[in-house]
Design a protein around this nucleic acid. Structure first.
Lengths: 117, 117
DNA sequence: TCATTGTGCCTCGCAAATTGAGGTCCGTCA
DNA sequence: TGACGGACCTCAATTTGCGAGGCACAATGA
């Protein structure tokens, strides 16, 4: 798993604050481990959005500290370990709230920028 | 001009990066001065988005430094001064690019979060 | 007249988040 | 053996918004 050539990345500043939203959304589909999250995001966006490790891990740890997600280590057949994260009920609730906020935010900006070109 | 009670504000982190986009969009409608921008945004969003001075002025100065906008002082009848900002051709171009980026960004997040509830 | 509110500009230090670079460990395959 | 990729992590620097503060002056009303 590795490839997908780089596309023009989206303005980094726009991404700020959207990370928890993304992570929780992803984990809604099932448990995932860090590296997998990065690859999944990269693939699904065709390389437009490359989640950086330096942003991902701190974000995950924070979500875990607030009990929105939990983690557990799982040993693969080859003996190597992976740390899986899964969403918690509190995280579900938080996600719902965040989604609403996100939609509000989009509507607001759209109101100024004008509807989709 | 003053009122519009405070509503629940949108997550500050989400706002990051969207400010230049907003400012340029507004200035597309014609020259405006700082205080006016703040009031306009507050009114149009019903108080959801209160652009703070500490965020606005630095942002304007930056846009001016990059020649996306220009400013000029105008004296009112009562003798007071206002600093008007107006968009420049370079700003127009930048705005167009930013808009496209914005739409891309929204689509991307939407793809993970799921379409509007 | 005096005090308060509103208009209008600005800067500074703090907090939060991402980036980019760095580091570690260990399978696998040539 | 050596190089690569999987897989975890941290840290300094940067960027941006926030809050608080400051300054100046007009208009309002007690």
């Amino acid at each position: 798993m590795k490839s997908t050539k780089p596309e023009d990345p989206v303005d980094r500043e726009l991404l700020k604050g959207s990370t928890p939203l993304l992570l929780l959304s992803l984990l809604c589909e099932g448990p995932m481990y860090g590296y997998q999250i990065i690859e999944t995001v990269r693939q699904r966006t065709g390389g437009t959005y490359t989640l950086k490790e330096g942003a991902l891990y701190p974000a995950l740890h924070k979500l875990e500290a607030t009990e929105f997600i939990t983690s557990y280590w799982e040993t693969q057949e080859n003996g190597r370990e992976r740390r899986y994260y899964s969403i918690q009920p509190a995280g579900q609730a938080f996600l719902t709230a965040k989604k609403k906020e996100w939609n509000q935010f989009v509507d607001m900006v759209q109101a100024f920028v004008g509807p989709r070109a």
